Computed example of a mutant assay.
Amino acid sequence: MFIIRKILQSHILLHKCFLFVIAVFLFTGCTYNILFWERNIWTEFDGLFVIEEPDNLNKYEELLPEMFDMPEFPMVGLFCADYYDTERWPITLTKYLSPYLESALFIKCEYKGTEGWYCPFMAVTTEAALIAGHRLGYPKILADNILFEKTEDGWKGSTMVGDVEHLGLSFKTDPLDSLALYSQVKSEFVRGNQVSDLVFTTILLKPPAEGPEVVMFSTSPPPLVKRVPGLALIQLGGPLEGLIESGTVTPALYQHFSMGPGQNPSGPVIALILIGLVVTICIVIFIWILRWVKRRKTAR
């Protein structure tokens, strides 16, 4: 602190340079904070995805906030995902969110004539992911354990809250093209080869699950690298029990998403910021050395 104070006192230009360095840090941090949710921070992840019709419409309405209307075709979306690579903050190069797992259930709804998906349940494995989700309106909770693993003939996702499995998906690859089994109502989930081309409207409440503020935004995943059709056995428990009968087997998808090498949009930004910081620090050190040399000569 003594050295820094001396440097700041040595010349007004040095003071300005240090303020500039601080401003760069604040600017990049705030800018990325603002744009945080307008871009894909999940650069690579795997997940199981299912869309199914509800078995219990009373339970469906119970999960739907009163300000939302029932859609013409009630549908339930479920997923379990392993986010093992995320976007990096431009200065420290550390990740926004450490790797975490997540599972969620969405139900279709309408709000003032707009159809979208409301999330009554979402569980995560880290505090950072929990806080980040609450900022958007997702009613995230910390799960005691979320499992996402490769099995002998597929993948398995399981979410435990306490001793109760709230959401479970046991996926097996299907030798037949199970996508063909999807009804026309589900076609929006699987059309084409690039599911990442789809944009879904999410409708949430702030504070999460309470309101009164209603927020709507569009979301889409990063580029799809791999998609495997199959069949999934669904298990629902806790507050979700009965919405879809446990033991239901339905067409599902395993999907791998990745930004891919060179596709990370923050790369050039990181490089420019780091170059700017290095140049600024070098200028500060150089000016300080010149001032120090000048004082030494004056003292003689």
Score class of each variant (00 low, 15 high):
residue 167 L to G: 01
residue 37 W to R: 07
residue 162 G to M: 03
residue 20 F to C: 06
residue 244 I to H: 00
residue 98 S to D: 14
residue 36 F to I: 14
residue 203 I to S: 04
residue 211 G to E: 01
residue 187 S to I: 03
residue 54 P to Q: 11
residue 102 E to M: 02
residue 44 E to A: 11
residue 25 F to D: 02
residue 174 D to P: 00
residue 249 V to G: 04
residue 106 F to R: 01
residue 106 F to D: 00
residue 33 N to R: 13
residue 258 S to Q: 04
residue 235 Q to M: 04
residue 193 N to I: 12
residue 15 H to D: 12
residue 74 P to K: 08
residue 98 S to H: 15
residue 276 G to R: 01
residue 54 P to R: 03
residue 186 K to Y: 13
residue 116 G to E: 00
residue 112 K to V: 14
residue 288 W to F: 09
residue 87 E to P: 08
residue 236 L to V: 03
residue 26 L to P: 11
residue 123 A to W: 00
residue 48 L to Y: 01
residue 176 L to T: 11
residue 40 N to A: 12
residue 73 F to Y: 04
residue 222 P to E: 15
residue 221 P to Y: 07
residue 232 A to Y: 00
residue 11 H to V: 01
residue 235 Q to T: 08
residue 20 F to K: 02
residue 163 D to Q: 14
residue 252 A to Q: 10
residue 95 K to M: 06
residue 145 N to R: 10
residue 243 L to H: 02
residue 151 T to A: 11
residue 10 S to C: 08
residue 112 K to D: 12
residue 266 S to F: 14
residue 162 G to E: 12
residue 150 K to R: 06
residue 38 E to Q: 10
residue 148 F to C: 08
residue 115 E to W: 00
residue 225 V to G: 02
residue 40 N to F: 02
residue 175 P to L: 08
residue 50 V to F: 05
residue 82 D to E: 09
residue 66 E to M: 05
residue 126 T to F: 10
residue 41 I to M: 15
residue 141 I to F: 03
residue 35 L to W: 10
residue 213 E to D: 13
residue 38 E to C: 10
residue 283 I to W: 14
residue 9 Q to F: 13
residue 231 L to G: 00
residue 70 M to R: 13
residue 196 S to C: 09
residue 274 L to N: 08
residue 128 A to E: 10
residue 123 A to E: 03
residue 144 D to I: 07
residue 262 G to R: 13
residue 154 G to F: 01
residue 33 N to P: 10
residue 299 A to K: 15
residue 192 G to W: 07
residue 37 W to A: 15
residue 242 G to K: 04
residue 147 L to Y: 14
residue 245 E to L: 12
residue 275 I to H: 07
residue 2 F to D: 15
residue 158 S to D: 12
residue 63 L to C: 02
residue 31 T to Y: 07
residue 193 N to W: 09
residue 248 T to A: 02
residue 217 F to R: 12
residue 145 N to T: 07
residue 30 C to K: 10
residue 289 I to R: 05
residue 211 G to T: 01
residue 196 S to V: 02
residue 277 L to M: 11
residue 23 A to K: 07
residue 169 L to Q: 00
residue 35 L to Q: 05
residue 201 T to G: 09
residue 236 L to D: 00
residue 36 F to P: 05
residue 191 R to A: 14
residue 225 V to P: 00
residue 186 K to T: 10
residue 157 G to C: 06
residue 204 L to H: 01
residue 219 T to I: 05
residue 112 K to P: 02
residue 267 G to N: 09
residue 139 P to V: 03
residue 93 L to R: 10
residue 131 I to K: 13
residue 90 P to A: 06
residue 51 I to Q: 11
residue 97 L to E: 05
residue 202 T to A: 14
residue 225 V to C: 05
residue 225 V to F: 11
residue 22 I to H: 11
residue 107 I to N: 06
residue 194 Q to S: 08
residue 223 P to Y: 01
residue 138 Y to W: 03
residue 6 K to W: 12
residue 190 V to E: 02
residue 92 T to E: 09
residue 160 M to C: 07
residue 133 G to K: 01
residue 43 T to P: 05
residue 61 E to R: 14
